[in-house]
């Protein structure tokens, strides 16, 4: 490599490093402010804490107490884990079945599910939350059914795209060996679909963990998830506790960063695979 190239690459790297620093700055600024007294944040968010403004963990304690953050974390975790598990299990079964059984019913199901992805949530938010009331789905267990119904479109779409690429001969061999469709699916197809399970699980985890409006309308008055707890701090105009807000933002971001760094490779690959199929 000649000198000109080296200089150019060096400049590019320096530019990218600067940009990366700018990318991280907003989160670091929130982190720094979470240790400052509530009245020293809005006026000077870019100032470091001083002996006078530093309050230690006080914002965290008051924020957790005000929002019930620990419970919110529990609800978010419960709803996300069980909804995602339910979605990947049932939608993969459905996707395989309607891809393999070519019939009018199958294509009706497929098009209904796929076109539901375009519909904005506002179109159904009122009627859906009324429906949830009537059917007693307005609790952390019932909401799983709603997430299955809502997540079905994207998940069936991604699974179907993948099922099409599996040679059908493998399944036919299983049938000849005496497997019924349930055995064929769980013993033969399920293991082949594994990488795409990770993709679908990640896409749904990102959505459900961060979802605000659906849980707010359906269970928000009795159960707060993390986004609802953060929004709850907003309160009436002018009454907001900025210290508690900063601490809650940090606490909301930390689990995501931990999750991201623990399975970063799968997340980026999963998101790309989901997008390319989608």
């Amino acid at each position: 490599m000649d000198r000109q190239h080296r200089v150019r690459d060096g400049l590019t790297s320096a530019f990218l490093a600067l940009l990366a620093a700018l990318y991280l700055a907003p989160i670091l600024i929130v982190l720094v402010n979470s240790f400052k007294g509530r009245f020293f944040i809005s006026d000077a968010p870019f100032a470091l804490p001083t002996a006078r403004t530093f309050v230690g963990l006080q914002n965290y304690l008051s924020g957790i107490a005000k929002t019930g953050f620990l419970q919110a974390f529990g609800y978010s975790l419960f709803i996300t884990v069980f909804s995602v598990a339910t979605i990947v299990l049932f939608t993969s079964m459905t996707a395989w079945c309607i891809t393999r059984v070519r019939s009018r019913t199958s294509s009706l199901f497929y098009y209904l599910l796929v076109y539901s992805m375009i519909v904005p949530f506002q179109m159904v938010m009122f009627t859906m939350s009324k429906m949830a009331n009537v059917l007693h789905l307005d609790n952390p267990v019932g909401i799983i059914v709603l997430y299955l119904g809502f997540g079905a479109g994207l998940s069936v779409f991604v699974f179907s795209g993948f099922v099409k690429s599996i040679p059908v001969e493998i399944e036919e061999a299983a049938t000849i060996d005496g497997c019924n469709p349930i055995q064929t699916f769980f013993l033969v197809v399920f293991p082949i679909l594994k990488p795409i399970y990770i993709t679908v699980a990640i896409l749904n985890t990102m959505w459900i963990w961060n979802d605000y409006l659906l849980p707010y309308l359906v269970i928000g008055s009795n159960y707060r998830t993390i986004p609802i707890a953060v929004q709850y701090l907003q309160g009436g105009y002018g009454s907001r506790d900025m210290g508690a807000m900063m601490a809650m933002l940090v606490l909301a971001i930390v689990p995501i960063i931990v999750f991201y760094f623990s399975s970063q490779k799968y997340i980026i690959e999963g998101v790309v695979a989901g997008a390319v199929k989608g």
Binding site: F90, T91, M93, T94, W96, C97, I98, F109, L112, L113, S116, V119, M123, V124, T127, M128, K130, M131, L135, L137, V145, L146, Y147, L148, G149, F150, A152, V156, P181, F185
Partner: peptide
């Protein structure tokens, strides 16, 4: 294979829509 998904889809999406 299809009933659980389609039932949830009908209740959470299709009827409300």
């Amino acid at each position: 294979f299809t009933l659980p998904t389609m039932l949830a889809f009908t209740l959470a999406f299709l009827i409300p829509f």
